[in-house]
Design a protein around this nucleic acid. Structure first.
Lengths: 151, 151
DNA sequence: CAAAAATAGTTGCGAACTCAACAGTTGATA
DNA sequence: TATCAACTGTTGAGTTCGCAACTATTTTTG
């Protein structure tokens, strides 16, 4: 391994820079970054549960409760009880939610293309593959850790 | 460019996974992730100012005010007035702060080596280089943007 | 079927974070 | 030198977040 700490620091700094850019970008739609993320996932999987959404967003479920309530209060999301499971919710976008998602997503797509274009000349595919490997590895370690804790 | 959105999502997910691991790791030292980060930077640049620290941590300076005050209250950091500049502070680690930094840093180093080892076989150097390119690019875009806003 | 365990979501609490507005110090300029 | 601009740090307000404890529903199992 080249230098784990260097790669660690690069990944963190890159995230903070990306997040900073996202925050400013989404502010024109009156969206925070996590609120955008929820709209994005709800468009991909309409009727998704809070539980599943918290896994996709790698955050605590209580966070989803509050974010989705806020989005519902703003008329972008509806929270319906699950047909057969009395514990669960189903989250959907409203018409307004879909409209906001579509606009902000288009802007974000263009922004990403522009933002990542400088280093695109070569080896972009290898970057992608290595990041994918890294993510899977971290995910496996996480689930192993949880398994080890619970049994 | 391969797929900007895919790379974007991978970077975000990887960060959340890394951050989640860090949080659990540092909890054994009664440290949060940002508090560890401050100890780390203070060890690298003793006497650093709040302003500079906020740039390194890519966050608002008000955040540094509160974090460093908390660390001072816990006896890990001292905040001294700058000798010649009446506006600025100089931040230093206390002896206890240095001890905590040393221990947590050693644990974190080992953790990083283990955590990133799965994908290390090949192309680790290219990953490093591409991340470096990406970080520099994002940093340049940020400063260009700030410059564009202010003049 | 009844008791126990797992699951989905909520709430209270405290930490971390941004943004805007502010005070005090320093530096530039006219 | 006097004024104005830039810079450093602080505070108030509001959002996001994890964790722990809780309720209410399944699901398991004895």
């Amino acid at each position: 391994m080249a230098d784990a700490t260097l790669i660690y620091n690069l990944l963190k700094e890159i995230f903070f820079l990306i997040d900073d850019g996202d925050r400013h970008l989404f502010s024109q739609y009156n969206l925070s970054v996590p609120r955008f993320y929820i709209l994005w996932h709800l468009g991909n999987e309409p009727g998704i549960s809070s539980q599943r959404l918290s896994e996709l967003m790698i955050c605590d479920k209580s966070n989803i409760t509050r974010l989705s309530k806020g989005l519902e209060a703003d008329g972008l999301v509806v929270r319906q009880p699950h047909e057969s499971d009395g514990r669960a919710l189903r989250l959907y976008l409203t018409e307004m939610g879909e409209a906001v998602r579509e606009q902000s997503l288009a802007t974000h797509l263009a922004y990403n293309d522009q933002r990542f274009s400088d280093c695109s000349v070569e080896g972009q595919d290898s970057l992608q593959q290595q990041l994918l490997c890294l993510k899977d590895s971290l995910l496996t370690q996480l689930t192993d850790f949880v398994r080890a804790e619970n049994g």
